[in-house]
Design a binder for these strands. Structure first.
Length: 282
DNA sequence: AATTATGTTGCGGT
DNA sequence: AACCGCAACATAAT
């Protein structure tokens, strides 16, 4: 479910509530969701929480990390009876009722707070790894879209041999990490480029036009706290993001284009639903 | 009631 | 290498 903005939002908010806390124990309710030995974590103090690509990293003072991938439906939900959450907002009611039938892992903190990993489809995972192990995982990905390492020159260099659609390449996390199905559709709309275009048919001028919009949609997504619909993505306190209010094409098939009033169309690219305005995007 | 869709990635085969 | 189809799994919507 989450793309870079959602994962970044979760990592930032987790860091504020988890840093400095001591793990009392980690309970694995579904074996498939956890790789490693959970007992190694008991007694460790959490140093920080960070993000690389769509992976969350819970960091300790020792050479050990918990890396977490939410895949399609993973959620990390923090609950503490004592603290007022998120600057004084009370937790959502359903948060206080966890664990649910979709809860796969529970982390207990020594102050009584809990971190729940809910994952309906069980694609997501936690792995206990060394710093080196985390690096090996991160090396599978290209540069994060919101970093200087993802430059126009680099992007241009990755495109010439690709015959598949530009949307598929933008979503290829070995090329650039962090862009998923929603933000890919949105960036291509803003750049007025047809997502079905063969990548090697784009001119340098078109790639140059697209490039800053890849950064913009991700930045705007982070600033909005991510995209939520059907209540599937929520932050660590159970609250929705707001980027869904800025979506121009994703999920808008059959609606009027916000620019030209044409009907937004949906096609399948690489097996994924893809939305675009056939009039604005060429 | 069966088929199809879902915000992700990895695999095996061509 | 790049690409394609399918796989992991659970649920809601047609």
């Amino acid at each position: 479910m989450p793309e870079l903005p959602e994962v970044e939002t979760v990592a930032r908010r987790l860091s504020t509530v988890l840093s400095g806390k001591v793990i009392q124990g980690v309970s694995v309710l579904r074996e498939k969701s956890f790789q490693g030995d959970p007992s190694r974590l008991t007694g460790l103090t959490i140093k920080s929480v960070s993000r690389r690509a769509k992976i969350i990293s819970i960091n300790f003072h020792e050479d050990i990390k918990i890396i977490v991938h939410l895949k399609m439906t993973g959620q990390l939900i923090y609950f503490s009876k004592k603290e007022k959450i998120g600057g004084g907002h009370p937790s959502q009611d359903w948060v206080s009722k966890l664990p649910s039938s979709h809860t796969r892992i529970v982390m207990d903190l020594s102050d009584g707070a809990k971190l729940f990993f809910n994952d309906m489809r069980v694609f997501g995972w936690w792995k206990v790894v060394s710093g080196e192990g985390a690096e090996l995982e991160f090396q599978k990905y290209g540069p994060d879209v919101n970093t200087d390492a993802f430059s126009l020159e680099y992007f241009l260099s990755k495109l010439p041999n690709r015959r598949v659609s530009i949307k598929q390449v933008v979503m290829d996390n070995k090329v650039v990490a962090g862009i998923g199905n929603i933000y890919a559709s949105e960036a291509l709309f803003l750049a007025k480029i047809d997502p079905t275009r063969a990548t090697n048919s784009l001119s340098k001028k078109e790639v140059t036009r697209l490039f800053p919009f890849l950064k913009k949609v991700i930045e705007d997504g982070i600033n909005a706290g991510g995209t939520t619909f059907d209540g599937k993505y929520v932050d660590v306190f159970g609250f929705a993001g707001s980027y869904q209010n800025q979506l121009k094409v994703y999920g808008q098939d059959g609606e009027n284009c916000k620019i030209c009033k044409s009907i937004i169309e949906k096609v399948k690219l690489g097996g994924r639903g893809s939305y675009f305005c056939p009039s604005c995007q060429k």
